[in-house]
């Protein structure tokens, strides 16, 4: 086995892990605080990607600049989705909640298909897209590196925010005991709204980055929903701290398979399904 290839796979995996973590903490926030398993999470990611694309095409906005618009837009979209749909199924059986978010996912995908069509859309004109450094046979692209750094900063900011700020403490309180939270004066419904909107915002920022890294199609979100699920399951539901490690594990194994296995790129998706499978079966077996 070529050691340079192994190292390249490792580096690419680590760099991808940042984005995975960013999308997954958003999902974990929705699951942990609100208790809703949101299958439409990747759609916020996809909307972020296409908004960045549109801002680039229409106004020539650099994706970094468009973050200033896309992030608040996704926060508002998340808040509207919560207020108009999620809120009404909070007490409903879990299956109904999942069906609702699954339906939302289909609606958003098809809306995007109507607006932008099914072809991959790329922000090809960004000057820094092809910049990278070569280190002893390993190439590190500026864009993956930048997305890794931005993601990591945001994920760490979320950790600190949850631990140290009043709103963060309120979210943890609501997550740990909804009745207790309402009895200490928290408007639980408002905290849910903010948590869901924040979750959409984080996914949307991830989407802006994928718009530069890849050329997204309206179905790009669903793949990320699944990846985020694998990561959240691996980290353990509600364990936000575990997400960094789980992202690293999923992204690196995926990248290793893609780099080292012949035709491995086609097996990328098999990797995280295998991880979900192993973790769930393993946990069930250990508990039995």
């Amino acid at each position: 086995m070529d050691p340079t290839l192994v190292l390249q796979g490792l580096v690419s995996g680590v760099l991808a892990a940042g984005l995975y973590a960013l999308v997954s903490v958003g999902l974990a926030l929705a699951i942990g605080v609100i208790g809703v398993i949101n299958f439409a999470h990747g759609e916020f990611f996809m909307i972020g990607a296409f908004l960045a694309y549109q801002l680039f095409v229409s106004f020539g906005f650099d994706p970094l600049l468009s973050l200033i618009f896309v992030a608040p837009a996704l926060f508002v979209i998340g808040a509207i989705v919560y207020r108009s749909t999620i809120r009404y199924v909070l007490e409903a059986p879990e299956l109904n909640q999942m069906l609702l978010t699954f339906g939302l996912s289909i609606i958003f995908q098809n809306l995007a298909l109507l607006i932008w069509g099914g072809d991959p859309r790329s922000i090809s004109g960004v000057p820094y897209r092809s910049i990278g450094v070569q280190l002893g046979g390993i190439s590190i692209g500026l864009v993956p590196l930048g997305s890794f750094v931005i993601s990591l900063v945001l994920v760490l900011a979320l950790y600190v925010g949850l631990a140290r700020t009043r709103l963060g403490r309120a979210m943890r309180a609501v997550a740990q005991n909804r009745v207790g939270a309402s009895l200490v004066g928290l408007e639980v419904d408002r905290i849910y709204l903010v948590a869901f909107a924040l979750s959409a915002l984080l996914a949307g920022i991830g989407g802006v980055m994928i718009a530069v890294i890849q050329s997204p199609t309206p179905t790009v979100g669903f793949a990320f929903t699944l990846k985020a699920f694998a990561i959240v399951v691996l980290a353990g539901l509600g364990n936000i701290r575990g997400i960094l490690w789980a992202s690293l594990a999923v992204a690196v194994s995926e990248s290793m398979v893609a780099t080292l296995v012949p035709n491995g790129d086609a097996l990328r998706n098999a990797v995280f399904f295998a991880i979900i499978f192993i973790v769930l079966v393993g946990r069930a077996w250990r508990r039995a």
């Binding site: 943890r172 309180a173 740990q176 009745v179 207790g180 939270a181 009895l183």
Partner: peptide
């Protein structure tokens, strides 16, 4: 002070 105490167990 509710039934079941309803504390925040991880705090």
């Amino acid at each position: 002070v509710p039934e079941g105490r309803q504390l925040f167990p991880l705090m």
